[in-house]
Design a protein around this nucleic acid. Structure first.
Lengths: 227, 227
DNA sequence: ATAAAGAAGTTACTATGGTAACTAATGGAG
DNA sequence: CTCCATTAGTTACCATAGTAACTTCTTTAT
């Protein structure tokens, strides 16, 4: 559970390259960050970065690595909301909202370097630079879309419908009937918030119904007319 | 399906009283709105204000009335996301996000008066007044909380768990075991995204299990230890 | 006051999907 | 290369909740 504290200088190039800071020069950033209202920390894979209900005092920028935001229930069932990557921002919405507790759990998916910027510094950056404010606004607005997409993806749907929606979406992206799975079946199940065995069973049924074929790495759409 | 167009002057007092416009005088507002990048419209109960996937070009302020944001599936099943009231803002997130189609359906719950402000005017107001921008930021941030709350409320839960969560929350608000229902059972079911009959059945089971009593207006918690 | 509409309750039937308890396959680490 | 851990697949069993087709109770409008 090691959390290493790290000097900002090692990361100033990466930070300066983020869209959010495009209105600042490296020297600006060095000066601003010298005010010390930030931490850079390293988290190991599977380490919890923020627990649900934990108070939020910092805006987090992922400098390097992958972070999962997930809903957990009391039995440990997981619904993955989204994976965030290098340059993505977490907690910005909680900084400006009327409540500031993490509504979900944030977990490192890989080794992750995170820049935690304290609230006062965020507000200062907003005042100092309009592009920064607009950038934050966009980040927060996009967050609402991730959440509505998630609701649309899971609400009122059977497992089969979720699978079909996923395949439709991936067909649209990959432009082929042979959909390459970038994630494990286990992770796919978590993404839909269902049991792995239930996913397995439904894929099997769909194969029997002649809708698709699949192996561990791909799903091949056979009959798109009935999906 | 009548949509009446109305002059802003009738509503300038109400608009000026909204938190969002606290940084503007009535004269400021009259001058700004004279630029004509807005509409005021009246919608009747049950009229659709924005359909899912419809493009969003305006930020909507509810001047008067109630509006429901809901997820609909292909069979017409409803999951109510939230009810918005006088002074609430809709679509602000879509204005700043990288995608701008309504992810859900917006329906008038009562007769509603809505101020539709066009994107350019919103951006102008942001530049002109920092309080307006901060106000928008808060509105959008709070929207993410509504959505995460909704996901937490329905994801991975049985009907009984949803009912218990609702009662716990209402107990916390109403501070009595006799929970007054402000909504119909039908609406309650929509809020949980379930069938009305399933809600009915589960309430019945919970009564048989000695957890609660209920009638059309109230639910009385009998055994909070097992909830 | 009464009809008509809407909300609420009931229940038999059924499909969906979670649980548990396995076996089989895959893939790193040493 | 082979162990061990992780991931994947299978299936019997059962609980949950949707569907449909009713009845009964409330409102509301005339």
């Amino acid at each position: 559970m090691e959390v290493r504290f790290i000097n900002i200088d090692n990361y100033i190039d990466i930070i300066a390259s983020l869209d959010l800071f495009c209105g600042f020069t490296k020297d600006d950033l060095k000066r601003i960050f010298s005010l010390l209202k930030y931490d850079v920390r390293v988290y190991n894979k599977d380490q919890i970065i923020h627990l649900q209900n934990e108070r939020c005092d910092t805006m987090d920028i992922i400098v390097n690595g992958q972070v999962a935001v997930q809903h957990l229930d009391e039995n440990g069932n997981i619904l993955l909301i989204n994976i965030f990557l290098d340059g993505d921002i977490l907690g910005a919405n909680l900084m400006f909202s009327s409540r500031n507790n993490y509504p979900m759990t944030v977990v490192a998916q890989t080794k992750v370097v995170i820049l935690h910027i304290h609230k006062e510094l965020v507000l200062e950056l907003c005042q100092r630079n309009n592009d920064f404010m607009i950038g934050l606004m966009t980040a927060i607005s996009d967050r609402t879309l991730i959440l509505t997409d998630k609701i649309n993806a899971i609400a009122l749907k059977t497992i089969r419908q979720c699978i079909i929606d996923f395949l439709r979406y991936e067909y649209h992206i990959q432009k082929t009937n042979v959909i390459k799975l970038e994630i494990s079946k286990k992770d796919f199940a978590e993404r839909l918030g269902i049991q792995r065995t239930s996913l397995s069973r439904e894929l099997n049924k769909m194969r029997k119904d002649g809708l698709l074929e699949y192996d561990s790495k791909t799903i091949t759409i056979k009959d798109s007319s009935n999906m």
